[in-house]
Nucleic acid binder design. Sequence first.
DNA 1: CTAAAAATATGACATTTATCAGTAGTCTGT
DNA 2: ACAGACTACTGATAAATGTCATATTTTTAG
Lengths: 229, 229
Amino acid sequence: MESRCENCIIRQFNSLRAMSKEELKQVSNSKTTKILKKGEPLFEEGDKLNGVYCVRNGVSKLSKLSANGKDQIVKLASKGEVIGQRSVIAQENTNLSAIAVSDMEVCFIPKETITHTLQKNPNFTLEVLRHMAHDLKEADDVIVNISQKTVKQRIAEAILYLKNNFGEDKDGFLALTLSREDISNVVGTATESAIRIISEFKKKGLIHTSGKKIGIKDEKKLQDMVEGF
Amino acid sequence: MESRCENCIIRQFNSLRAMSKEELKQVSNSKTTKILKKGEPLFEEGDKLNGVYCVRNGVSKLSKLSANGKDQIVKLASKGEVIGQRSVIAQENTNLSAIAVSDMEVCFIPKETITHTLQKNPNFTLEVLRHMAHDLKEADDVIVNISQKTVKQRIAEAILYLKNNFGEDKDGFLALTLSREDISNVVGTATESAIRIISEFKKKGLIHTSGKKIGIKDEKKLQDMVEGF
DNA sequence: CTAAAAATATGACATTTATCAGTAGTCTGT
DNA sequence: ACAGACTACTGATAAATGTCATATTTTTAG
């Protein structure tokens, strides 16, 4: 049978840790588990969400389609993160799409369970609030980065971000492999520009690549690049 | 004597409306009122906030300094909005500066009053949460706009935003007058670029200006500009 | 394993935007 | 009312980035 939320380690990393034993039992009884293959959508922009998704494994990109037909990736959500809270809380259709960028395992928690607890357990609400406050700060940082840094700086930053958040595999490549297009959508630039700059980094010996995989060779210089040197 | 929060109309527009009579009384007793002249700071990036500010009148820009020395304006907060909640909730120093862009009147509410209510009144917490969810969505939209629209589109959008949110004066100029530099910092571009594009809009008959004041002449064409025509 | 499809890569060029330099206009405080 | 300071404006130019076209490599499906 399904594993129980009460015992789930993932929970330690998100706002569900503020739930009481009773509440967790309820979550566990109402949740369903879902497996997604790389590339499959969890939901699409504009969908009405009937609950939130707790990521057990894998990574999802949260993106928004712009008028000119390009996706902008606003956040990468991985193990322990809860996706869709914003829409459920604001009682609106979702403003973002969520698509798996690696195989995923997620738990779906119906919104009734969440909203019920939000109204009853102030500790949980406060915990969710803290998480959202954190997300908001990060969003502010993204705004400043995108508008004030060059594409080169942002790509260097993205590469370091991928290392710091998802680590490296045994061969020294970034553990999370994004397509060049996804990278350009994180950074907010044309795919060709991203590719060009990645090639340049490679020529300069800052990184090495193999297919779409990227490995960091000179972290310090990459960091300097971010700072603008 | 000072006016009482219980009677304050402003409250209707922000999360304070979810407070009980008792709680409001406490807020009213602990609050202080502050007058700011245009250009004066409410607080600066990195400050530790001892409470939140409720805007009674005037407008404040919330901005963040980037590495290259330029400010990026992340939000304009006006009547009814509460400033500084994010930092108080996350228990961090503030990541933004708040500077008055017009004369202001604000109420300062000490953080103890807020955090106390956050722990006791789930309705209030939920209301704050909803507001933050809304802010987060807006931040996502800003990210997409900045990275996917041209400077011209963003300036057209900013002008329409100023009209829709702050209205026009009797002579048909935008009621909130921002300096060209502030406009460029909202839009995330160089001041000269903003000026150039504003001149261009003027030549094309989309707007008219007088000193730093801007008035809209052809809203439809401005809107088309935003859409990319 | 192989052919087709998709993704990556690169060059040439157009467009957008930033930077620097300098002038004109507007506001502020005495 | 006036000087000085700030702000708006304009031109010339450089730099960054986007676009289109096309070649090459990698991945995928059968």
